[in-house]
Write a protein that binds this DNA or RNA. Sequence first.
DNA 1: CGGACACTTGAATAGGGTCAAATTCTGTGG
DNA 2: CCACAGAATTTGACCCTATTCAAGTGTCCG
Lengths: 224, 224
Amino acid sequence: MLTSSVFCEMQIASRGRDSIASVASRRFAPRTQIFRESEPARHVYEVVDGLVMLYKLLPDGRRQIVELISAGGVFGVSSVPVYDCFAETLAASQVIAHDRASIEQSPELCRHISECVKRQYCSSRAHALVLGRKTATERIATFMMQCIPGRGGYNCPGPRGRNDSARIRLGLTRQEIADYLCLTIETVSRTLTALRRRGLIKIDKREQLRVNDVCRVCRMTGDH
Amino acid sequence: MLTSSVFCEMQIASRGRDSIASVASRRFAPRTQIFRESEPARHVYEVVDGLVMLYKLLPDGRRQIVELISAGGVFGVSSVPVYDCFAETLAASQVIAHDRASIEQSPELCRHISECVKRQYCSSRAHALVLGRKTATERIATFMMQCIPGRGGYNCPGPRGRNDSARIRLGLTRQEIADYLCLTIETVSRTLTALRRRGLIKIDKREQLRVNDVCRVCRMTGDH
DNA sequence: CGGACACTTGAATAGGGTCAAATTCTGTGG
DNA sequence: CCACAGAATTTGACCCTATTCAAGTGTCCG
């Protein structure tokens, strides 16, 4: 098994004067399933490091990656007693598993998780706009901008000087990008090729590319 | 002005022993804008009665209705200091406006809102699957199922006896349905016509239709 | 009853999907 | 270092679903 788990009973020092809570810190290898849809929702997870994807499946195999969660995000939150999607790591990931029952007992933890859910709720709406109304090129551009920290979002600082380029590590295969953006693998590939031919990006390795002009790509998201 | 507002300083009796909170109960006429995207987010709203839509716009006019909120739902929640979408009533609606600053002071209210956000967060993910992976017919079927309370969701009771029909009040124009499901008005119209011709539904009035066999429509959502 | 708006229908089109094949990585073992 | 296998990706040709554009038709409300 690729997973190594370290369970521990620990004091959450950073959360102040709460009583001792039952938490487990776990490390998962890349592409490891953490839970499945319709399984009893026993834990709420916090991502410390790495990247986790949440996805839903239709019976005929169509897949939709509904969310990508990196450090600081939470997952496993559900309004019913079972998980509403599958969770799987993309990169090697460190997560904290909070026992669902114990969360109620820590107002600080509750508050923290609520804050994360609120943030993720807002970004899931931005994603709905992507899925619903954007062209393939706009989707890819939007996705690339998401991969450049600090740019493109609310109060983007704008280009930094002459050379406004950025290196991006995708962390997802073409198939995963397709399932996230609701395209096919072929369309993702074709769109990236078209962007490369137009000189907007350079594909260094499979998962690594360079955006030559961040602002120009940002203008291609359709948002401006 | 179509809006009649009643402001009041009231004790939220149902929320127990919290101190007096600043809330305003307001009534809005149908198709009335409540707030705009990028406006300072001063309030969090709770829907008491009616129907509110949240939507985002792209600069070129493309619109995506990201959420429909009925009684018991909240809106105006944002992780940044401005609203991230537009809010507009569809039906005449009664809402409670909570002062953003005052929310923090009521743990009970905080908890209540968090609970709503959690629920809405989950349903927004289900909607992402609709937008991303479903065909026009599946989208319309999914939407119709959403309009039939108690059916199609987690632990649906199944058909009730021989005559498993339901009357639906849409409350949305074809254009709004299109913007919610990410289709065009023509595709919505054509799809409804096709369903009518196949004898699955009967279109009584513009906004009212009858589903002859709920289970059959449910099977058309693509979820089963 | 008439005007405005919402909806429906038709024909042509295009964007992305599907299917199939070629190419490029990546890792392994010699 | 090179050869090879298997997988991931790219590319090509064709197709289909939903869109676009353009008329109609229906419905509501004064």
